[in-house]
């Protein structure tokens, strides 16, 4: 369902003239699968997720990203979102003055409208968000606050998971959602993913730790180093990496 072909990405300045971070990355996540990406700091994992999601300044210089066989690289970020592409941010931001519930509802309805679906009624929305908030462990008071303002790191990650649960994305990229989470929160992330998991959904889970993968059993694990996927394997690869680190791959790349 998600196919990345020989992707090159340079960041640093707007003309793409900066340094090349992704240097011919290829990867395929078939329908219904969960793949994990691991890799050293600065190897380009977030760069990859921004490029897939369409952030300005992270344009592909060559190669392609295909969702269900169609290139997404010419689409605006919101058009990609409407196709069901979701990014759980590594560092979710605070947006002062934006009312959380209002924003999530506006976003949900914008996606639905772009797909030609009807709006979710206010009553249905409230019911749904209450239910999902419970699942991710955010209380009502948090939903009434301005978006992420004054939230702890873990609470911000819960807010990402709340949105993922609400939008039920077709393909989700989770950029270090587990970083900074306590054990209960890790289990919660596992529960959200496992509830959504299904034959028509895919996940790309970026992580530094094998622990999250105890809760989300990946179908495959890839190692990103030097701007490429240097090794792919089954869940056992994560265990091995935890033991021996990335040194071997940095040499190789």
């Amino acid at each position: 369902m998600l196919k990345i072909e020989d992707l090159h990405v340079a960041v640093g300045n707007k003309d793409g003239g900066g340094s090349e971070i992704l240097k011919g990355l290829s990867l395929e996540v078939p329908k219904g699968e969960v793949h994990a990406i691991m890799g050293p700091n600065g190897s380009g994992k977030s760069t990859l997720s921004y490029t897939i999601a369409g952030r300005d300044g992270y344009e592909a210089t060559s190669g392609d990203v295909l969702l269900d066989g169609q290139s997404v690289l010419d689409l605006d970020p919101d058009e990609r979102a409407a196709k069901g592409l979701f990014l759980s941010f590594q560092h979710p931001m605070e947006i002062p003055g934006v009312q959380t519930m209002n924003f999530i509802r506006t976003a949900l309805n914008a996606q639905r409208k772009a797909r030609g679906e009807g709006e979710v009624s206010a009553a249905d929305f409230i019911r749904l968000i209450r239910e999902k908030a419970k699942l991710v462990g955010l209380d009502d008071a948090k939903l009434k606050r301005q978006f992420n303002v004054g939230f702890s790191g873990g609470e911000k990650k819960r807010m990402e998971m709340l949105q993922m649960a609400m939008f039920e994305p077709h393909f989700a990229i989770m950029d270090e959602t587990d970083s900074g989470l306590d054990i209960d929160a890790l289990k919660m992330v596992g529960a959200v993913v496992n509830e959504l998991r299904g034959p028509d959904r895919g996940f790309l889970v970026i992580t530094h730790y094998q622990r999250l993968l105890d809760y989300i059993k990946p179908d495959a694990v890839h190692v990103l180093a030097g701007g490429r996927i240097v090794k792919s394997g089954g869940p056992e690869l994560a265990v091995e990496l935890e033991k021996s680190g990335y040194d071997q791959f940095i040499e190789a790349a």
């Binding site: 999601a53 369409g54 952030r55 300005d56 605006d76 970020p77 919101d78 990609r80 979102a81 409407a82 979701f86 990014l87 941010f89 979710p92 931001m93 947006i95 002062p96 003055g97 934006v98 924003f103 999530i104 506006t106 976003a107 949900l108 914008a110 996606q111 772009a114 301005q146 949105q163 939008f167």
Partner: peptide, 28 residues
């Protein structure tokens, strides 16, 4: 820019994302 991208990743088109941020700014 970062906030704009965040909102657009969630499905708001550029005009709606800008409007939401301006509204939030003034609303305070």
């Amino acid at each position: 820019d970062e906030a704009l991208f965040y909102l657009r990743q969630r499905g708001l088109d550029e005009a709606a994302a800008r409007a939401l941020l301006v509204e939030a700014f003034v609303g305070e």
